[in-house]
Design a protein around this nucleic acid. Structure first.
Length: 478
RNA sequence: CGGGACGUAGCGCAGUUUGGUAGCGCGUUCGGUUCGGGUCCGAAAGGUCGUGGGUUCAAGUCCCGCCGUCCCGACCA
């Protein structure tokens, strides 16, 4: 057993859910609010979200998208236009019925997602093939009246981005759908150090109103799956009901092909549950609000140490997100634990011994390794160290996912693995929704995705035994 | 939304069985001390016992309703 460094945090092994909540609250990522199911994202948690926004927004812009903002309210009549869509979201829509004292003539939905209101505008804006493609993204809050909530993973109100695009052809829309999923995958793996399985959702699991839904699925360290991002090819479902038509080059009036895609503050939950340990958070350098925390050890040379600490802070802040913890009221040991709990990738200790040697002590959050570095080498060393930590965290998470991914060839095996082992189970599937439902009923696990990277395990469906040519992932999920 | 657990100082809890002056640890404030893995000593502040009703001479404690959190299901980014 690992020594218990942080007494406020329940060990992961003892109670994973409690550990998760403890980490969030103690590391000050978020706190519960007076509103049921709604959290307050505190500055440290919001800083992570800002980094997510920065890194994703850059990728969106690079692929030609522009940001815009649509209203939070959606008239009921608008929301109801697309039948499948309404049915999907109806149970979790919050309604505004009054303005002041007056009852509204028409109820307003607080957006659970913005397809309908955006489509209503697209029908106005799009006239010609020359207007296409429309590539718009919005950073927004949405509200879904969930039955049960959990900080970051499922809250009544959450922050996200939703991309909404319109295209001339089906091929173009499909290409866009896959391009954006690829961006999510790249972001999750390279910036968040979270390995994902990417693929397509089954009919049962797809977005309400979509033709096809693609997903990236991540494995949390309790073995459960988390849908970390989705990209939908909406086909012409919405363009037909919202009448989004354009005059094509051939002189014919046609409906546009659309996509939508999103990731949310749920990603913060994914970061916590993928990398965290009994000491608390563990953040990958690229997303960490603080990459280096300087902890001075005063000893008998407080003034000298403090001066050097400030000098180092000035030096580092040009290239890293760095903070100096020069608080007098806490001892170094206390600070070590505190910053480890908050997931800072690298701690820099500077004390009287180091002053004499022109060196500093670096400590890695991911491995706990302590490294003495000459001051002259510091910047270059840190650069490499950040890369190394980022890569190592991904490797560890990937190994965990691989180690906890099993294979089943028949229903008995599938059931046994899903019930008794944590993690994902790969199995062949015939494509029938009935087989999917049977797995869910008997194991509570769901079909997470039909991965792009296929393997041939056998030629028979692991559930019904009929001919099957798709390999899929099953898992219990959040 | 169903089943279970919980709600007492900022946090973690005791007190509830058997109704009778609201407690402990940590944290906080002040003074000193210490500083390479949660220093030590002293003093102090801090409570509508989740909330509303009921029973009682008397309710943190008993009864009923409601709210919230956590867990397990059903539904979902």
């Amino acid at each position: 057993m690992e020594e218990k460094y942080v007494k406020e945090i329940t060990p992961k092994s003892e109670d994973f859910s409690q550990w998760y909540v403890d980490v969030i609250v103690k590391s000050e990522l978020a706190d519960y609010s007076p509103v049921r199911g709604c959290i307050v994202i505190r500055p440290y948690g919001y800083a992570i979200w800002e980094n997510i926004q920065k890194l994703l927004d850059r990728r969106f812009k690079e692929t030609g998208h522009k940001n815009a903002y649509f209203p939070i309210f959606i008239p009921e009549s608008l929301l109801q236009k697309e039948a499948e869509h309404v049915e999907g979201f109806a149970p979790e829509v919050a309604w505004v019925t009054h303005g002041g004292q007056d009852e509204l003539a028409e109820r307003l939905a607080v957006r659970p997602t913005s397809e309908t209101i955006i489509c209503s505008m697209y029908s106005k804006w799009i006239q010609s093939w020359r207007d296409l493609p429309v590539l718009i993204n919005q950073w927004a809050n949405v509200v879904r009246w969930e039955k049960s909530t959990k900080p970051f993973l499922r809250t009544t109100e959450f922050l996200w981005q939703e991309g909404h695009t319109a295209h001339r052809t089906e091929e173009e829309a499909e290409e866009e759908t896959l391009r954006m999923l690829q961006i999510y995958r790249d972001f999750a793996e390279n910036d968040l150090a979270i390995p994902v399985i990417s693929g397509r959702k089954s009919e049962n699991e797809k977005f309400a109103g979509a033709l096809r839904t693609y997903t990236i699925e991540a494995m949390m360290s309790d073995g459960k799956a988390l849908q970390a991002g989705t990209s939908h090819n909406l086909g012409q479902h919405f363009s037909k009901v919202f009448n989004i038509q354009f005059l094509d080059q051939d002189g014919k009036l046609k409906y546009v092909w659309q996509t939508s895609w999103g990731v949310s503050t749920r990603l913060i939950g994914a970061l916590i549950m993928t990398h965290g340990d009994d000491r608390g958070l563990k953040l990958p350098p690229r997303i960490a609000p603080i990459q280096v925390i300087i902890v001075p050890i005063f000893g008998k040379k407080k003034e000298e140490v403090l001066a050097k600490s400030r000098e180092l802070y000035q030096l580092l802040k040009e290239k890293f997100r760095v903070e100096l913890d020069d608080r007098d009221e806490y001892t170094p040991g206390w600070k070590f634990n505190e910053w480890e709990m908050r997931g800072v990738p690298v701690r820099l200790e500077i004390g009287p011994r180091d002053l004499e040697q022109n060196q500093v002590m670096l400590v890695r959050r991911d491995t706990g390794e302590k490294i003495l570095v000459k001051e002259a080498d510091l910047l270059n060393f840190l650069n490499d160290l950040m890369e190394d930590i980022q890569a190592n965290m991904f490797r560890q998470a990937k190994k965990f996912m691989d180690d906890n991914t099993h294979t089943a060839t028949n229903f008995e095996e599938l059931k046994e693995l899903l019930i008794n082992k944590r993690g994902f189970v790969k199995a062949m599937w015939c494509g029938e929704g009935e087989c999917e439902k049977k797995v869910k009923e008997e194991t509570t696990a769901t079909l997470r995705c039909i991965p792009f990277e296929q393997e041939v395990i056998s030629d028979k469906c692991a559930v019904c035994g009929k001919k099957a040519d798709k390999m899929v992932y099953f898992a219990k999920s959040y």
